[in-house]
Amino acid sequence: MGLSQTYKMKTPAIELNHVSVSYLHNRRGIYSVKDFILKGGMFSPFEYKSVLKNIDLTVYKGESLGILGRNGEGKSTLLRTIAGIITPVSGTCKVHVEISPVLALGAGLELELTGIENIKIYSALSGNYDKKTIASVIDQVAHFSELSMEQLQMPTKMYSTGMLARLAFSSVVNAQPDLMMIDEVLAVGDKGFQEKCKRRIYEIKQSGATILFVSHNPDEIIEICDRGICIENGEISYDGTSEEASQHYLKLFN
């Protein structure tokens, strides 16, 4: 992390070159073999629907990029492509930093298991699996989320939405990722916790990490990010400072 200051000057962290992503979509609402036969989907039940079109994007180390756009325009897909979860159909996606999991609300929480077990599994699956690290992760998550040990030992199905958000957010931000991807998580949780999360994100930003932040709230984008992009119809329609991008985004609704 000490080198981050030197690197901060325009070393690319993420380079997307003409990236297009398509989803294999069911053409006629065929979701079962029955429909497959009855609706005559024998020949081509699936079609490719393009979600991201020819995206060119370079994010530099230490930059914090806000991603704005209406629902279903490809914001989450963009994050997943960068995280390597989705393979683009064309173009190249190069990531030069260590990737953290995409932080989305309640992602991967197993509702039957307790909070602690979930933290354990989540931490292990994202690459921290030795016993000591896991124990310290549990401590940090407990501390940050302000959930009591008693609550952490309950199955997560008994949690309220706000508690789930606390758990999900805490289990990712306690790590020191080089690249942090946040997908609309600040919407829930009470005011106090939201502020705490923002402070934490700000700390991570200060440490030189690259941040990708998806939100519907332009104020949050302005607060946290330096640069903002707008995604419309799978294309980047605006790229500029976070204030400008937010204004552009708000115009979409007028």
Partner: peptide, 9 residues
């Protein structure tokens, strides 16, 4: 589903 969508495993 959720793990597949959010983790690079």
């Amino acid at each position: 589903t959720h793990l597949i969508k959010s983790l690079q495993v």
